[in-house]
Write a protein that binds this DNA or RNA. Structure first.
Lengths: 208, 208
DNA sequence: AGCATAAGCGGACTTTACCCCGCTTTATAT
DNA sequence: ATATAAAGCGGGGTAAAGTCCGCTTATGCT
């Protein structure tokens, strides 16, 4: 038997986990995020409160799990879908496409994404902060192709990630913060993101 | 008697407010932010819990008030101090100086700044989001001087503010997230901020 | 000074996240 | 099949945020 692996999830545990997520979605759909309480969730799922906490650790953990579920499809598109979001386009185009897609995703899910925030912990939205890692990777590629000559790409990646996700997580009101018309092409934040990226990469030598 | 003014704060109320802030600072100094509870604060200040909530509305409100107190000096320097932080320098220099100063301020106060976050409300750190307004103003000036040709400065201001404050508010761990040596000149985030601003303003025509 | 009124005050009460720990169930090894 | 240990489960218990409302006190007017 292999050594370090901490033994697979028990089948009853897995069943309960899926059940809880399912019920949580129902409760959110019916009464909104605010009304999802740990007691209520446990009772409606026919389980004990202790079970809920064992599975998700904290209230925010439930919403994190929900976001992660929805994030999976998004990640697929980023990692293996068609360009420019997926691999194949040049890094600058991919950064722009990623930003637009991520903003749309966050707007779509802003209720649960914000509920997933935990005051006592750094942001863990998406599995291990996909955004920061992906942005960092694309910046690295851009540097390889000599599209960019900046030394500290780690800090830059953190700041660009904040520019991307921060507005939705922090700075905008929660109720209808955006034009009622969600035409993807007309989201101001997305246009602004594109501007920042384009200017960041416009080098004096090959301008344009 | 003038009309709309809602009558000045009563002297006992003001006394209690100051008293509570003072006691809160003591408790933070002794046991850290986490240990400041509303009951504890009220008891130690010799007041009722209801009073604490009436004054500050919410737990986060206390820390908001503390940050605002400290913010006042910072604001003075921005509004009326010597350039480049204060008025007098060109907008680009002021943006860079503002970012560096703000990052230093947030690092200095990161414990209470983070405690001032409220999951149910957009970020209100600083009085009415000084950062966003100030950045917006400097962007506007830059456009007047034709240093910048971007249409939607509002969105840009939001995103730059997020790039500035987001990392400290959201993305970095809370315990010693930074080099122990706090030399202002060596803060990676500040350097990275400067890079973003410089590139944002570097126009193809007058590059350099 | 006396009065009317709005503001402030206190602390019991409610709600909810989160902890704890004895019991039950599952997975594995023999 | 049985034993054993690890993981899961339940629900009562605790602590802390936030609400309510009857009582008290400051304030401004006359």
């Amino acid at each position: 038997m292999p050594f370090g692996r901490p033994r697979a999830e028990r089948v009853d545990a897995a069943r309960n986990r899926l059940q809880l997520l399912q019920v949580a979605r129902e409760m959110i759909a019916e009464h909104g995020v605010e009304k999802v309480t740990m007691d209520g969730l446990a009772e409606r799922a026919g389980l004990g409160k202790g079970t809920v906490f064992r599975r998700f650790g904290t209230r925010a953990g439930i919403f994190r799990a929900l976001v992660d579920e929805d994030d999976r499809a998004f990640q697929q598109a980023v990692m293996g879908g068609p360009p420019p979001l997926g691999p194949g386009a040049d890094p600058v185009q991919r950064l722009i496409a990623y930003g637009r897609a991520r903003i749309a995703f966050l707007l779509d899910h802003h209720a649960i994404v914000r509920a997933a925030l935990d005051r006592n912990q750094p942001v863990p939205v998406g599995e291990h902060n996909l955004s920061r890692l992906h942005v960092r990777m694309l910046l690295g590629q851009a540097r390889q192709y000599e599209l960019l000559d900046i030394a500290d790409l780690d800090s830059l990646a953190v700041q660009l990630t904040a520019a991307l996700e921060g507005p939705i997580l922090l700075y905008l009101g929660m109720s209808r913060p955006f034009p009622a018309d969600p035409t993807p092409a007309s989201i101001p934040l997305a246009d602004s993101w594109q501007t920042i990226i384009e200017r960041l990469f416009r080098t004096p030598s090959h301008s344009g």
